[in-house]
Amino acid sequence: MRIRVLVSYKDSVLDPQGQTVRNALLTMDYNFVKNVRQGKVFEIEIEDLSDEKIKQVIPELADKVLANPIIEKFTWEIIE
């Protein structure tokens, strides 16, 4: 099984890297771009686990290791 975890800054936290990417896009005349938030993607290959177990352990490891809950939030999905 493969799990994808997306970590990004909380909305309340400034993201200077995302702003810089946004500015670059605007410089290239992609004027429809309103905002960019940059984050990190983790693809984790795991042994087959029950849905219940996955719902327990993935948020747990994301909270403990992949994200710093003070500044970041995360979402996750089973990709295969």
């Binding site: 936290v13 400034l14 200077p16 890297q17 810089t20 710093n68 003070i70 500044i71």
Partner: peptide, 17 residues
Amino acid sequence: LLELGLLPGAMLRNKNL
């Protein structure tokens, strides 16, 4: 120390990158 939770808060990239 911040990551360990021995001090409060977190570090972000410098404002001017």
